[in-house]
Design a protein around this nucleic acid. Structure first.
Length: 118
DNA sequence: CGGCTGACGACCT
DNA sequence: GAGGTCGCCAGCC
């Protein structure tokens, strides 16, 4: 399939400062609301880099910093499963702590109504 | 310098 | 609905 800017967005959206730009966007999500990897990516210029948003957040030290990484879920409104550790339960705790109802399977309740729009 | 590996999502079969 | 392809960065061997 040839490259199609209409569908794929601009090329080379990701760059050396990509992580920093992701964090700058995520910190604007208010407590009690959530956003998605795809939404953050779209806000940065291309939905194609949704994956890299995940990479950027994965690079964070979960216990350090001020980036509310727990407010980012996947496009279905579900906490994205990690490869190994139990970070999903940590993310669930943090969301519940700020008033976001999350089912045991990680599904954010009323996802559509608390989804933050950039 | 080469290869691997991650928190994704749209689209296709 | 399930499974595969593709986009293509940064960090760590």
């Amino acid at each position: 399939m040839p490259y199609d800017p209409e569908r794929h967005g601009p090329r080379r959206i990701v760059g050396p400062d990509f992580h920093a730009r992701v964090y700058a966007v995520v910190v604007t999500v208010p407590a009690g609301q959530v956003t998605t990897y795809g939404d953050v990516a779209a806000h940065l210029g291309s939905r194609q880099v949704a994956r890299h948003v995940g990479f950027a957040l994965a690079a964070l030290d979960p216990g350090q910093g001020t980036v509310p990484w727990h407010r980012v879920v996947n496009s279905r409104g579900q906490i994205s499963p990690r490869r190994f550790d139990d970070a999903p339960s940590e993310q669930r705790r943090r969301l519940v702590d700020e008033g976001v109802a999350v089912a045991v399977d990680g599904q954010v309740e009323r996802f559509d109504s608390i989804r933050h729009v950039f």
